[in-house]
Nucleic acid binder design. Structure first.
Lengths: 235, 235
DNA sequence: TAAATAGTGTCTCTTAGACAATATTAT
DNA sequence: ATAATATTGTCTAAGAGACACTATTTA
């Protein structure tokens, strides 16, 4: 009867707690990875979990998500794509008390991260394969699956995939990013011709050295965002 | 200083209240309508609002939505399509205290409603055009707009539109339902040929009398739901 | 018969997808 | 030259959309 559970009495509260959880995606080592943190306290002590925290009374849900994002990755709002995923609120998802969590998805370019390989040595925070994550706390496995599905969906229907790349990129790098997230190979010629028609990227006068012919660098056209929203990029 | 606002002290609470709001759509009088209720209390007294209520500590968000839906329309879970829309939580959206609301969209066939024209005479509950609603309380105008957008989107990409029709329907009625929601006219021939290919409906051996040649009645094929999910029906 | 509605077929133009050909660099 | 990568082009089959035609009922 001395379990840590005794410290929590659900009856003390007649209102649920509200948290935000942020599934933070990035492309690292040619893989789609999500940032996870290792829990130090009961419940699910020692389990990996999606980063998140309580919503403060005076901040919006979005602000709370950006705040947590900044705390975990030190990345600013301007350098990240953030969108609400959905809200999870089964009564027993947290053994302490009723916790309703508003889940968000964030896309961060690897170039924005200061320690892109922190997960390899740090014990309590790290990047893990989004497809084969470790055992996760609470219903976080479920949330992560939802997030991956949404990301794939978004990538097919909008130009949001650019958020996973640095500001300048080659078309090959862009195609590889799409292939990693969609988990399928794409035809080089068709990928490029569609991209040309969609007019969401523009070439800059720079090239990247490769093993063969240097590759032209491209930039995402900001003014094309709205236009592309309703159009399928890669059906 | 005797305003009703004095009855509420936000400082008393360190946790937000959580509600569910349900945007209930139906096709009535050849229009897309949403069920609204008239508020009797401050704030927004006398304004129309999207029905909703507090989430109880032991019920899931979905259960809360179904409960409210039943209370407002007396329609059972089995007779309705319900899906989470998104969560709205700006700190000042409710002047009483911090209220975070999880919004849902519900589609109800007109044949499932017991008083499909209640709005015409009842003073505190009624069906209103989803496109030109009256002035709404809180941020409900915003929520309703989101709901309409989602409905259109869903209709294009899935077979969910059938939920707005009775069990048996003619292809013309189905086309009209789509035209009402999408707010555009569709070609009869193309509509029907796509529908034939998609195999989401099946003919029954019944006909409906019309002004001319009787129209064959169709039924939605339940086993086609999952299959259609990822496929665009009317691109 | 005409009017009204149901139901099917045909044609064209666009585009997705498979595949091939050419271009430019390093070694 | 050869290898490696970048970049563009061609062909075909499928599909979207415009439009016309036939079918079956009532008045």
């Amino acid at each position: 009867m001395n379990s840590p559970a005794d410290a929590y009495n659900p009856a003390d509260y007649d209102r649920p707690s509200v948290t935000v959880d942020i599934v933070i995606f990035s492309l690292l080592d040619a893989q789609l990875k999500a940032l996870l943190i290792k829990r130090k306290l009961w419940p699910y002590e020692g389990y990996w979990a999606i980063p998140g925290g309580f919503v403060e009374m005076t901040e919006s849900l979005e602000d709370a998500a950006y705040r947590e994002l900044k705390e975990e990755t030190n990345v600013d709002r301007a350098d990240v794509y953030l969108e609400q995923l959905r809200t999870f609120g089964k009564p027993d998802r947290d053994p302490r008390t009723r916790v309703i969590t508003v889940a968000y998805v964030a896309l961060v370019g690897a170039d924005k991260l200061q320690n892109p390989r922190a997960g390899d040595d740090a014990a309590d925070v790290g990047w893990f394969s989004a497809y084969k994550p470790p055992r996760l706390a609470f219903d976080h496995h479920h949330i992560l699956k939802h997030a991956v599905t949404r990301l794939r969906y978004k990538l097919e229907y909008s130009a949001v995939g650019f958020q996973l790349l640095p500001e300048l990129f080659t078309l090959r790098e862009l195609q590889q990013a799409y292939e990693i997230v969609l988990d399928e190979t794409l035809d080089k010629g068709n990928f490029r011709s569609k991209l040309r028609k969609s007019k969401v990227v523009e070439a800059v006068k720079l090239y990247r050295q490769t093993g063969g012919r240097p590759a032209r660098l491209y930039r995402f056209k900001d003014d094309a965002v709205a236009e592309v929203k309703a159009r399928r990029l890669f059906p």
